[in-house]
Design a binder for these strands. Structure first.
Length: 877
RNA sequence: GGGCGGUUAGCUCAGCCGGUUAGAGUGCUUGCGUGACAUGCAAGAGGUCACUGGUUCGAUUCCAGUACCGCCCACCA
């Protein structure tokens, strides 16, 4: 057999992924009678390139999908991408800019054409990257949020929400990004603290003694002031309510009003009121019927209402204005002040509160059933603690601003009659006004928030609004896996829309995975550009190593700070597995059976019974942990078992037997056990397991491990005694090895004799060959009456005393030192145990089994202690 | 201002619905080219489980408080 010593992942990955696709193993049949298991992918942005967050989430989804598929479920993992309105428009705009063009110059229609071109060219990049990750998605069902079908779903939902009165249009103050030149929903604004100033500005009174001083972080907004507000209970200002002050620079007269919103303690206790540029002031303005003066152009330059500052950028204006106020002696004070400012989540520009016509969805009534569904556990959050976050937001939900002033997206399906101004909202594009019959209709220029279509994803992708077989088979989906950062954006909205339009929850379980952060603990985001490239990692370490690393680090409720050393470590694990396979395969050259036999119990050695028992335990643990989303646990259990039990002990123990009478039995067992291991590992490491499985001479009911059956328990193979017995063997071996190592006895040097002070029967005697094999010892003598030879080392394991005669090679000083160290450890333990058992309370109150256990422990330790003392004494005569 | 999470080996992190010899990877020390694997094998050093109290026979684990770190939400100009 000619197999390289080290595992080379890349050719293997390519080969098997192609094989899986060609054989349609990812395809889900909606007509299958098997129990369905379905997941819809959180659709990555078409602009996206696979980052670590994707890698993690999709690895976890693939683990679940492959696990369930092997368990025999009719498994659908539905993939797709999101058109990502603002993000994609930004990308294409940037590209245009390099050609010296703006989208305005190009015009709407041509620009959208450009975006589609871009999408066709680059939009599948992330899909290809997901394939490199090994994702077993049903690519025949790949969807895009602007597909014809999905657009139909969007249209249906918008129109029915409108018809039911849940959608309305309003002239309202919204978050406005001056760079993207669109409105943003509240949750699309990220607040960050910046260091700025708090400026104290004097507004002079009509009479000399009636001035007020206001404090502001955004002095330029004063140009839009239409009042000054004070708290009606504030004694300092009470007398001014109803009087007028003069707005500096512009000279506008402002009424002083009383409003409870104003905090007496903060600043000067007097607030400038700018209804057009501050959400609070907007509300105050409504209460007091104040004029709204817009001072900004959509790009945040100052408009004609800004008087002398017209045309300036908002920050130039601020600077100039402060200088002017200083000159006029109206800037009373300027202090350093840090405060939270909203930034656009797409381009990081500071947003402005801005008045404009926007479309909204009334959320309160839609949210109610969605809250109930989670309370009733029809949707289960994992970990459960995220429920609280969900409830918190849902119970305080505000109306959702769904219109965006961009071009890329689902254009709002509302037409306005140019004659009578009536709006038309129809499922089919209208051709004439229903009121006046005019055919001069213009469609609303805005498009819908990207998240509007995302909210429909679990059913729009399955064929809604048509009543498809896919929908009846796969909806509700089984699991949704995502990061907590989009619980509000996406998860909550899907639950609401699913309940409203499908009358059922969109998924039964939501697994909220950890967030992978960068070195500074900042989250990696699509726009911030601080992403680490998983493809680079795949190139260097292989997909399986990356997947296994992510799985073993996927602890519930804690963020992941990924380190490269860690990945390297798990690449070693791939290599270990690969080499175990090489070892097994090179001993199967003469193996001819088409189907390996499970050997009869009487043919099994202790090691065989032990490994079968352990394997059964591992099957149970891995299965249970995967069912409960404990990815790290199941991965860790597999790692420890395969490396430190199967390879370190089992394979080593059976080596000599491969040349003996039991060769056939051992071969059967190797195939049986190793196939089981490969199956358990397959969801985590799909490529290497397929590669090995295809080489292993197993009996194949199917042609790929990915559709082979998931292991189940074989109770008649379980022999719990074998575990205890193997423990003894391992401890004896380790004890002798420790002495060998400390005495600097070369591995090649054979030990002559081991004297064991016990009866020549029992487990140790029956399996003494294991000990001689692993410790390179020639002969063992069992003698209950043995006395310690002068030049020898002592080993005490579970009450059994052993001597290792070491004439000529022993360093007695070292042995004495070793025994003394052990003695002091034992003495410490002894003291603690005695104290514990002397405690009346412990003996009476602790459970009996614990007390018994401690008593047994004490006995053992006393025996060991005595033996150690005796042994040590032998050095002093 | 509310809410949540973290603090365990030099580093990156598991674990603990109370009783274990507190683990892994990596790094470190020592020995070893051993017929699967040097991406390895064997042995070892390294931890008052952040601090202070409480509950308990018993706390790294449960509770409270403190300190530091981080996240989310919130209209304080």
């Amino acid at each position: 057999m000619n197999i390289p010593k080290a595992y080379e992942p890349h050719a293997v990955e390519k080969k098997w992924y192609q094989y899986w696709e060609e054989n349609n193993y990812f395809y889900a049949d909606a007509h299958s009678s098997k129990k369905p298991f379905s997941i819809v992918i959180p659709p990555p942005n078409v602009t996206g390139s696979l980052h670590m967050g994707h890698a993690l989430n999709n690895t976890l989804q693939d683990i679940l999908t492959r696990f369930k598929r092997m368990q025999g479920y009719n498994t659908l993992w539905l993939p797709g991408t999101d058109h990502a309105g603002i993000a994609t428009q930004n990308v294409v705009e940037k590209q245009l800019l390099q050609e010296g063009l703006t989208r305005q110059e190009l015009g709407r229609e041509k620009f959208i054409q450009k975006v589609w071109e871009w999408k066709r060219q680059y939009g599948d990049l992330i899909i290809e990257q997901l394939k490199r990750l090994g994702a077993s998605c049903d690519w025949s069902r790949t969807r895009f949020t602007m597909d014809e079908g999905l657009s139909k779903a969007v249209r249906e939902v918008f129109v029915s929400l409108y018809e039911q009165g849940f959608i309305y249009r309003d002239y309202y103050i919204v978050n406005w990004c001056p760079r993207c030149q669109t409105a943003l929903a509240d949750i699309e604004v990220e607040y960050r603290t910046i260091n700025g100033h708090l400026d104290y500005i004097k507004y002079e009174g009509v009479n000399d003694d009636q001035f007020v001083i206001v404090a502001t972080t955004r002095p330029e907004t004063m140009l839009g002031d239409t009042a000054v507000a004070v708290n009606p209970d504030d004694k300092r200002y009470k007398h001014l309510i109803g009087k007028e002050v003069i707005l500096p620079i512009l000279g506008r007269r402002l009424k002083v009003i009383g409003d409870n919103f104003v905090e007496i303690e903060f600043g000067t206790g007097a607030v400038k009121v700018t209804p057009a540029h501050d959400p609070n002031d907007f509300e105050i303005g409504k209460r007091h019927n104040l004029q709204q003066i817009n001072i900004l152009n959509p790009d945040a330059t100052m408009n004609e209402n800004a008087g002398p500052y017209q045309g300036l950028d908002r920050y130039e204006c601020r600077k100039k204005l402060i200088e002017d106020l200083k000159t006029q002696g109206l800037l009373i004070k300027r202090e350093d002040y840090s405060y939270a400012v909203g930034h656009c989540y797409r381009c990081d520009t500071i947003v402005e509160p801005y008045l404009s016509n926007q479309w909204f969805v009334k959320m309160k009534d839609i949210a109610k059933p969605a809250i109930e569904a989670v309370k009733a556990k029809r949707v289960e959050f994992i970990p459960e603690s995220w429920e609280k976050t969900y409830f918190e937001w849902m119970e305080n939900i505000k109306d959702w601003c769904i219109s965006r002033q961009i071009w890329w997206g689902h254009q709002i399906p509302v037409w306005y009659c140019q004659k009578c101004k009536a709006p038309l909202v129809e499922r089919q594009n209208p051709t004439k006004c229903l009121k006046c019959g005019s055919n001069e209709l213009t469609q609303d220029q805005d498009v819908l928030d990207t998240w509007f279509s995302s909210a429909l994803w679990p059913f729009s992708t399955l064929g809604y609004p048509d009543k498809t077989k896919d929908l009846t088979t796969f909806y509700p989906t089984s699991v949704l896996s995502t990061g907590f950062d989009i619980i509000f954006f996406w998860v909550a909205r899907m639950i609401m829309m699913g309940l409203k339009f499908m009358e059922d929850v969109p998924f039964k379980q939501v697994y909220i995975h950890a967030l992978i952060r960068d070195a500074d603990g900042q989250k990696m985001s699509k726009s911030a550009g601080n992403v680490i490239d998983p493809l680079d990692v795949i190139d260097r370490y292989g997909t399986d190593a990356l997947r296994f690393t992510l799985a073993i680090m996927a602890v519930q409720g804690r963020d992941i700070l990924l380190s490269e050393e860690r990945i390297e470590g798990y690449r070693h694990f791939c290599n270990k597995l690969y080499n175990a396979a090489r070892f097994i395969l090179m001993n199967l050259d003469d193996y001819l059976d088409a189907k390996s036999q499970i050997p009869h119990v009487r043919d099994l050695s202790l090691a065989d019974r032990w490994i079968l028992t352990r394997l059964n335990q591992v099957v149970e643990q891995v299965t249970n942990n995967l069912e409960s989303f404990y990815f790290n646990e199941s991965a860790q259990i597999l790692y420890d078992f395969i490396w430190h039990e199967y390879c370190d002990w089992y394979l080593e123990l059976l080596k000599p037997e491969l040349g003996g009478k039991r060769r056939k039995v051992i071969q059967d067992l190797l195939i049986l056990t190793f196939e089981l291991i490969l199956k358990l590992l397959h969801p985590f490491m799909p490529f290497i397991t397929e590669e090995i499985w295809q080489k292993l001479p197993v009996y194949r009911e199917v042609n790929s491990i990915m559709i082979a059956s998931w292991p189940t328990l074989t109770p008649n193979q379980i022999d719990l005694d074998s575990i205890k017995d193997m423990e003894l063997i391992k401890e004896v071996v380790t004890g002798i090895r420790t002495i060998r190592s400390e005495m600097r006895i070369a591995p090649k040097q054979k030990l002559k004799t081991l004297i064991i002070k016990s009866t020549p029967s029992g487990i140790l005697k029956e399996n003494i060959d294991y000990v001689t094999l692993l410790t390179n010892t020639n002969e063992v003598i069992f003698n209950p009456k043995a006395t310690k030879p002068d030049t020898s080392a002592t080993i005490i394991v579970k009450g059994i005393e052993m001597y290792l005669p070491l004439e000529g090679i022993v360093d007695l000083g070292k042995e004495e030192e070793r025994l003394s160290k052990e003695l002091s450890k034992v003495e410490k333990e002894l003291t603690l145990l005695r104290l514990k058992l002397a405690n009346e309370d412990f003996v009476t109150k602790a459970p009996d089994e614990i007390v018994t256990k401690e008593r047994q422990k004490l006995e053992e330790i006393i025996a060991k202690h005595d033996k150690l003392i005796k042994s040590l004494k032998s050095y002093f005569h």
